[in-house]
Amino acid sequence: MALEGLWLAQVMKHSSWLYPTVETMHIWGIGMLFGSVVIMDLRVLGFGHKLSLSDLSRLGVLVAFIGFGLAVLTGSLMFIAQASELIGSRLFILKMCLIFLLLGNAMILRIRTITNGMSKAQALLSLIGWACVIGMGRWLAYV
């Protein structure tokens, strides 16, 4: 695939330290994103109800955004190093689709001002969904 001919893709393949460093940073991003998401979803589900949801999500959404950005950036770098293999992987495509679905879910959850049964269902979907995204990423290495 043409992407793999890119200068950056070649650097990813051939530099000794870059690939493992990018992998490590991908996990930093996942940690920030998933950590914040778990806390915010649990709050929506009714845990820790003494904490103000607006205060909690002000910080939580920021950290989640930074984490997501880091994961997308590092994920893209790993992608271009083996684009032809990944694009042919059903699991990879499924992972990307699930990420888009969960982003939409998060946006709707964020826009809505009241917490109701629907938002609890969305928080549950978010918890399970992001856990699955991580699992799918991990399994990409084995299937």
């Binding site: 690939y19 493992p20 460093t21 992998e23 490590t24 996990i27 083996q82 293999e85 990944l86 042919g88 992987s89 990409l140 290495a141 084995y142 299937v143």
Partner: peptide, 20 residues
């Protein structure tokens, strides 16, 4: 050490064990 350990398990994208 952690980075290397992670590298060891992470790198077999699409050459997964079950395929062989």
């Amino acid at each position: 050490g952690g980075t290397l350990l992670f590298l060891n398990v992470a790198v077999y994208a699409h050459h997964g064990w079950s395929e062989y």
